[in-house]
Design a protein around this nucleic acid. Structure first.
Length: 579
RNA sequence: GCCGACGUAGCUUAGCUGGUAAAGCAGCCGCCUUGUAAGCGGCAGAGCAUCGGUUCGAAUCCGAUCGUCGGCUCCA
């Protein structure tokens, strides 16, 4: 017998959820004895268990399984463990090739353990609650296909997802949080706020920006451009379609073809939609002789690229087939690499702060062992120094670097707690070589420059999708498609409202006037649902005093009227501070 | 791409075991002239994703295709 946690201990959540996975497998064994259990771990918000079964589980099956699981929990079976030899384990699971595979692959010297609740025994590393009664509340949430060991060459299994907590109240709170996440879903808000759409007639993964979404995008671009200008970047523009030869030279055709749209034949030449902007920027670099005095050269472009993504992976604006990167390529000498990289780190901080992303993570991705060259340590060092000089905590992501070099990834979390990669900064010694880039050094010798590829927002589509969820559609005043609407109480104030709107526009704001023949309540409600930062109500009193009565988003009590010019000053200040 | 679910007016949905589409919101037109989250009435709007099949008859059943959603995988 292996020692189980003491009965009165409250198990950690992941132990509780892991136990819930066993309970699920127990219930499946009872109700669907033909299903072969494979693996069932605890995950971030619950647990899952994968089964090999030819027929998929239905919603009705889940209900039946939940009922059986409740009985198992109520029976409060104690989780008992035993240590066995590899042979014993294999014999025990003779009819389950998955368990045999796991048992066979456990390294020599590591214990092999079986855990039992009631009449169900599972091959398992351990980490459970003392007994099934510890599962205070649980719910099966969904069924999905999943490949054995995540590899699409393996058989597809049926995965059942669930969640479990110590108490029903916590489960309830979690389910409420999921509802809130749904309300913030950028796909839903994108439609409700008329920001963007994806059109079946045009094709999946291709975004149509409506006027309100396009203005948000333009504002984000303006913000980014402002930073680029200050740092000496030069805008460039490159074609969306180029001869495929370019990607042969760059190596993209060899390494990236599976993500590219197919060739387009014109006059016997094969053209490709660009999947990346770098080869184009390289051609601009190459168009003239370069001296060390020219470096660093910083080319920036809101470059629209097209990548083939498998249909099942597309998701709103955050996973698309055509997108625009806030891309830039820096060409510098090896000596300049460090300083240039630090500058991009500062830019990243500026961006992330402006949008109020709190939960930011930096990842240093190194290249796969078989791709590593003698320049990798130099690049990694530059990245590490830049992060450390800015006191940015980071994590290592070994083997995740691009095919041409190591990189820094910037990741944030959305309303659902899902992690999104936004920007990426990559050091590249390879492409300058492949394209034969040169600069004349001070000693008169031609040398090869180093490149930095950087996109900090990443893709504007994804960035704004994440921002929509982050703000729940309630954009801060500097980003709101409409910053203020003037709502007259009755038609007698309509002229005043129109004049106030025009004054606001003249002052540089995005303002509307509500000319509808509706009640005040109706108009307020309409603009509230559109999440406007300010609704300016004007009635007889305001017209006489030359004031507006602001109804401010997020503030319950009514505000006193103030002079229109005073409001303009307030809004200007707020926009300046990006609140 | 793979597994599963789904696809009805601009949006959200109702349409039982097949009998020939219903409502709310939005829109338009009137009335009301309004003081902080839906005033009242009327009108118009889909042939049920597409194509094919079964049937006297299909939104309802079957098949294929397209798309969406939840996952697997991948990445900005």
């Amino acid at each position: 017998m292996l020692s189980a946690p003491h009965r009165h201990d409250t198990p950690p959540l992941d132990a509780l959820r892991h136990t819930a996975a066993h309970v699920l497998a127990y219930a499946v064994q009872d109700l669907f004895p033909e299903a072969k259990p494979t693996i069932g771990p605890a995950i971030e918000n619950g647990f899952y268990y994968d089964f090999d079964r030819s027929a998929p589980f239905t919603a009705g099956d889940l209900a039946a399984l939940e009922a059986r699981m409740k009985e198992i929990v109520a029976a409060d079976y104690v989780m008992t463990g035993e240590r066995v030899t590899r042979e014993q384990a294999i014999e025990r699971f003779a009819r389950n090739p998955y368990k045999i595979e796991i048992a066979s692959e456990i390294p020599e010297g590591e214990p092999i353990t079986l855990y039992t609740i009631g009449a169900f025994t599972d091959l398992c590393r351990g980490g459970h609650a003392h007994s099934t009664g510890a599962i205070g509340a649980f719910k099966l949430t969904s069924v999905a296909g999943a490949y054995w060991r995540g590899d699409e060459h393996n058989p597809m299994l049926q995965r059942i997802y669930g969640t479990a907590f110590d108490t029903p109240a916590e489960l309830e709170a979690y389910l409420l949080m999921l509802e809130e996440a749904q309300r913030r879903d950028h796909r839903r808000l994108g439609q409700e706020l008329d920001l963007f759409s994806i059109e079946e007639d045009a094709g999946p993964g291709l975004v149509f920006w409506h006027p309100k979404g396009a203005i948000v995008r333009a504002l984000v671009e303006d913000f980014i451009r402002e930073g680029l200008r200050e740092r000496g970047y030069q805008p460039v523009v490159t074609p969306h379609i180029v001869n495929e030869r370019l990607y042969e030279i760059s190596g993209h055709l060899e390494n990236f073809a599976h993500s590219m749209f197919g060739p387009i034949e014109v006059e016997g030449q094969r053209y490709r939609l660009k999947p990346m902007n770098c080869p184009g920027h390289i051609l601009i670099y190459k168009s003239a002789g370069r001296s060390y005095r020219d470096l660093p050269l910083r080319y920036s472009e809101f470059g629209t690229v097209y990548r083939f993504e498998r249909s099942g992976t597309l998701h709103g604006m955050t996973r698309v087939r055509g997108f625009t990167q806030d891309d830039a390529h820096l060409f510098c000498t090896p000596e300049q690499l460090q300083a240039e990289f630090e500058q991009t780190a500062d830019e990243a901080i500026r961006l992330v702060n402006a949008f109020g992303f709190k939960d930011v993570e930096y990842f240093l991705s190194t290249r796969d062992e078989r791709l590593r060259t003698e320049t990798d340590p130099i690049a990694e060092e530059a990245i590490r120094n830049a992060l450390e000089s800015r006191s940015l905590p980071y994590k290592l992501d070994p083997g995740e670097g691009s095919f041409y070099g190591p990189k820094l990834d910037i990741k944030v979390h959305d309303a659902l707690g899902r992690e999104w990669q936004l920007g990426t900064v990559q050091v590249d010694f390879l492409l300058p070589q492949r394209f034969g880039l040169k600069y004349r050094a001070a000693d008169g010798v031609d040398r090869t420059p180093v490149m930095i590829h950087r996109a900090l927002a990443g893709a504007l589509e994804r960035f704004i999708g994440v921002a929509i969820e982050h703000f729940g559609g309630a954009f801060p005043a500097w980003l709101a498609p409409v910053q203020a609407v003037v709502v007259p109480i009755s038609k007698h104030q309509l002229d005043y409202a129109l004049a106030a709107r025009d004054r606001l526009r003249e002052a540089g704001f995005r303002a509307e006037a509500d000319e509808s023949h509706e009640t005040v309540g109706y108009k307020i409600r309409h603009w509230k649902t559109q999440k406007l930062p300010y609704i300016l109500v004007v009635g007889r009193a305001e017209v006489e005093a030359g004031t507006v009565a602001p109804n401010e988003r997020g503030i319950e009590q009514k505000r006193d009227p103030l002079a229109l010019e005073a409001f303009i000053a307030e809004l200007r200040e707020r926009v300046r501070e990006k609140r």
